[in-house]
Simulated scan of single mutants.
Amino acid sequence: MKMAAAPVRLVAGRGLWLSPLLLAAAIMAGTAIGETRLPFLTVLQTLANHLWGAGYPVDGIEAGIIWSYRLPRAIIAACSGAGLALTGVVLQALLRNPLADPYLMGLSAGASTGAVLVTVAGVGGGAISMSLGALTGALLAFGCVVALAHAVNGAAGGGRATQAAAAIILAGIAGSQMFNALTAFTIARSANAEQARGIMFWLMGNLSGVRWEDVWACAGVSLAGVALCLWYRRGLDAFTFGADGAASLGINVQALRGSLITATAIMVGVLVSKVGAIGFVGLVVPHAMRFLVGTRHDRLVPASALAGAVFLVAADVISRILVPGQVLPIGVVTALVGAPAFALILVRGGARR
């Protein structure tokens, strides 16, 4: 099996330079395919008109659909997929757990709670934006998880570097359940029937309301996440040997883990506030890319970001055409792929033991 995987990794690694072309093709497909199919030529002409003032004769309604609705939606899907995939790469490396992702850590649940408190319960009296509420919720969830994990380690005593990863995961599960309960309580207490329906749809992932002004925030955090992960790529590689092994190689384990998980919390908070809670991207994509390009983070980070972007754009397209006349929450599509992958990871992990 390992000998068969080696040529695949070699070919995939050499073909990484083609990935931007694949991403561009995915965004073009996401712009052209939807409830109403539009010719690729019309998409190209619309882009040329807006970017270079080409002056091609394009129907005004079609041009509006392409430029004001589908193109920003496809770009935000790509940015969100890249960011969520990176969070999975970071958490799985730092915690040395193949099942670690933002949802297991409680970050997405905290971000959802913060966004719902601002939009439904009116926390902040209109002075706090939804993005800031989601970011605050994600950071608060991260703080609770870290505090609980620290308490578990302190009570256990000894071997704290070895126990930290398991304690953080267990604390993340507890934090996730707590913040999900707070979200449900807030919706039940403060939202009317129409608000509750809209929020539940958004919590499963919804790109319908995104516009160009949302692109900059999503693109900014995703690009910053890629740059940060590449900057710390050697530290992430060192965690292959565990926290104790990384420390013996001169890595400041606490500083690296704290800075990267904090960056992950910020990324999740911003993305959840724009597109809702989309599951399984951070779980599935890093595992697929490890098979294709290996475990070295100088390749794994860009490969996971690009694959996550393409995966979420494709999922968004499927969510718009799977049921005629109805747009599904994008989280439904990612779960249809992610749930079997999650089961496969569990089975393979049990077989290795």
Rank of each mutant, 00 (worst) to 15 (best):
I66G: 05
T46V: 13
T46W: 11
Y69S: 15
A82T: 02
D59C: 04
L84Q: 06
L86E: 10
A74S: 08
I75D: 03
Q45I: 09
S80L: 11
A54V: 03
L71V: 11
W67T: 06
R73T: 09
G88K: 09
G53D: 01
V58D: 00
A54L: 02
S68N: 14
Q45C: 07
A48Q: 01
N49R: 03
I75F: 07
L71Q: 10
G55A: 04
T87H: 05
G60K: 06
I65T: 10
S68Q: 15
I65M: 15
W52C: 11
I66V: 11
S80E: 06
Y69P: 10
G64M: 15
P72K: 10
A77H: 03
I75Y: 02
L71I: 06
G83A: 03
R73Q: 09
A82E: 10
P57E: 14
I66R: 03
L51T: 08
C79F: 14
R73K: 08
H50W: 06
S80C: 15
I66D: 05
L71H: 06
A74G: 02
A85S: 07
N49G: 04
A48W: 00
L86I: 08
W67S: 02
L84E: 09
I76P: 12
G64I: 14
G83M: 00
L86R: 02
G81F: 06
G55K: 05
L51N: 05
A63H: 00
A63S: 10
A74F: 00
S80Q: 05
L71W: 05
A74L: 00
A63T: 02
E62L: 14
R73N: 10
E62R: 14
A48R: 03
S80G: 13
C79G: 11
Q45V: 08
W52V: 14
G83P: 03
L86G: 13
T46Y: 07
A63E: 08
G55D: 01
P72R: 08
L71F: 08
G64T: 14
Y56H: 11
L84R: 13
A54E: 03
T87E: 10
E62A: 12
H50G: 07
P72C: 08
G55M: 01
G53T: 01
Y69G: 08
S68Y: 12
A82Y: 12
I75L: 12
P57M: 09
W52Y: 12
I75P: 11
T46A: 15
G53W: 00
L47Q: 04
A78L: 02
A82C: 11
R70K: 07
T87I: 05
Y56C: 09
L84H: 11
I75Q: 05
G55I: 05
G64Q: 14
Y69L: 14
Q45E: 12
Q45N: 13
A63C: 01
A77V: 06
L86V: 11
W67I: 04
Y69R: 13
N49F: 02
A74K: 01
A54H: 07
D59L: 03
L51M: 05
A78M: 01
L84K: 13
D59S: 09
G81Y: 10
Y69A: 10
S68K: 13
I75M: 15
A74M: 02
I75W: 07
I75T: 12
I66C: 04
H50S: 09
R73E: 02
W52P: 09
A54G: 01
W67M: 04
A78D: 01
L71T: 12
Y56N: 02
I76E: 13
G88R: 05
